[in-house]
């Protein structure tokens, strides 16, 4: 199962976080799939604020942005804003249009779909989407 989105509410019972067994009392930890098919824990579910994002480091050193929507969905996309090259998407504002979540870049405000990474304002641009889950 590698859908980009995983409802936290439907997630498996809380399991312990790999590196810190005591850290998952509030509904688990967020894991992101990386290049070779492995899963890596990036943060606690409780680190996330609905409507905002955080930046995380993936094992090979890339940056990703993790978002929590109001409905409790978690989405992970690349942190780099392709328009400016700056690593800032995690600090953009989350919104939804027609029920689909997006983030608006904090620099020049272009919007990116959180489900498929496409830029809603310029079909030429997109950002990577990382499969994720809460365990």
């Amino acid at each position: 199962m590698t859908t980009a989105t995983q409802l936290a509410a439907q997630s498996a019972a809380p399991q312990s976080r790999n590196d810190d067994p005591a850290a998952a009392p509030e509904g688990g930890v967020v894991q992101v799939e990386y290049a070779d098919g492995g899963w890596v824990t990036v943060c606690r579910r409780s680190d996330l604020l609905p409507g905002r994002g955080v930046a995380v480091l993936l094992p090979e050193g890339r940056q990703a942005a993790v978002f929590l929507t109001r409905a409790g969905e978690i989405h992970v996309i690349g942190n780099r804003d392709p328009f400016t090259g700056a690593y800032v998407l995690s600090r953009g504002l989350l919104g939804s249009a027609g029920g689909a979540p997006f983030v608006a870049s904090p620099l020049l405000k272009q919007r990116f779909s959180l489900t498929d990474g496409r830029c809603l304002d310029d079909p030429e641009q997109s950002v990577p989407v990382h499969p994720c889950r809460v365990v």
Partner: peptide
């Protein structure tokens, strides 16, 4: 914000996340 959006937003936007214009 939830009170404002769910009570006074457009029907199709209620229950959603708002957007980068209305939230600020």
């Amino acid at each position: 914000f939830e009170q404002v959006l769910d009570g006074h937003g457009r029907q199709e936007a209620r229950g959603g996340d708002g957007c980068e214009i209305c939230k600020p």
